[in-house]
Design a protein around this nucleic acid. Structure first.
Lengths: 195, 195
DNA sequence: GAAAAAAGTCAACATGGCTGACATAAATGT
DNA sequence: ACATTTATGTCAGCCATGTTGACTTTTTTC
């Protein structure tokens, strides 16, 4: 934002900044967080975007690489559930990733209809790059906050998710974290999927 | 996310959840916040999306309505600086918003090359709807956090923005807040725009 | 009076969503 | 055994929203 400079009435200048409200940790407007979320998220996704350009990929590829990396051996259906896009949309980027040698798609052993998705070493390296660059931004941001901020932010983000999805998302994250800790265990057969 | 249910090895179930780390406010993985941001932001923008559908509009229209509402009398160039899109992209949605009677575009009095953008009452009502629905989600999320969370979240989001843009964004928000407080003062002539 | 700035337009293209209609292989149920 | 369901993939086309490049008009500024 080299130059955001909205037409500015002469009476409103930077000097007014801290005199807006009498209170100290003033509420400012409720709108602040809406706009900050917009600007922050835009920059947040711009990090991977730059890397992706070098591969001729887009954000959709990033998302696939990320979640396949986090859930090795996941099924196509699982990915569709997470991304909430159509089979056709996913199909396009998945094909490009497989053709480019970033993703490996193998038939399941117990259920051979399934295609279980894994990253190749090449894909895993790229996925790690994305995590590294985005983690770096997050860590830097948290460093600029009070010590307890990480937990506050985490709770805030969870609570921002639709109530009916919160449990599923938390489970998803915990499961991926556990799998990572226990040495990249590949997912076994999918258990009953309650409908 | 009715049913995120990634293929799950039998040994990783919900019971393992709290035994992941010995510590209490455990770090979990650094990846958590990356994914939470993804899911939270997706739901966050889905609120306006539903409303927009009824008007045949998209997210681009939302963004224009929002920022024109916040900065009445802003110039097209200002909007381009904020949104970081091309004149042609903006042109399309702006034309639709003007034709639909949501935005009013008047030549500037001091500089008649400029088109100063305002919302019509109809546009302002819609913009208020968007703010209301998104604020509601944010307030609900903050209510699920500790009392100091709002400031933590605010600081975190600011720090997530590219360092070179932080000051501009904060100025932009403060300026809009001040203008709103001082009774919707319309922007006067644009002052010198340092380049 | 020349140059620069603000805005707008036309044309063409890319990405990544979407719907609808089908096809195939494999598992499941009766 | 056969019918059905599930998991996956594919073709064709549409839509929203971003992009580049070229060019015009109006107005201000130097």
């Amino acid at each position: 934002m080299a130059d955001i400079n909205v037409s500015q009435p002469p009476h409103a200048n930077a000097a007014d900044l801290d005199s807006a409200a009498a209170g100290d940790a003033a509420p400012r407007s409720q709108i602040d967080l809406i706009e900050l979320l917009f600007f922050a998220y835009r920059n947040f996704v711009s990090d991977p975007d730059k890397v992706l350009q070098g591969y001729g990929f887009g954000r959709a590829h990033h998302r696939v690489l990320h979640f396949v990396n986090r859930h090795p051996g996941m099924r196509v259906t699982d990915l569709l559930d997470i991304l909430r896009i159509t089979k056709q949309s996913l199909g396009r980027v998945l094909r490009e990733l497989v053709e480019g040698g970033f993703v490996d798609s193998r038939a399941g052993s117990s259920d051979r209809r399934q295609r279980l998705l894994h990253l190749t070493p090449k894909g895993a390296a790229l996925a790690r790059d994305f995590v590294a660059i985005q983690s770096q931004r997050i860590e830097k941001a948290l460093a600029a906050c009070s010590p307890g901020a990480r937990e506050d932010v985490r709770r805030f983000l969870v609570a921002m998710i639709d109530a009916e999805d919160q449990a599923a998302v938390e489970k998803l994250i915990v499961r991926a974290d556990l799998a990572a800790v226990s040495g990249g265990t590949r997912a076994g057969k999918a258990p009953a999927r309650p409908r």
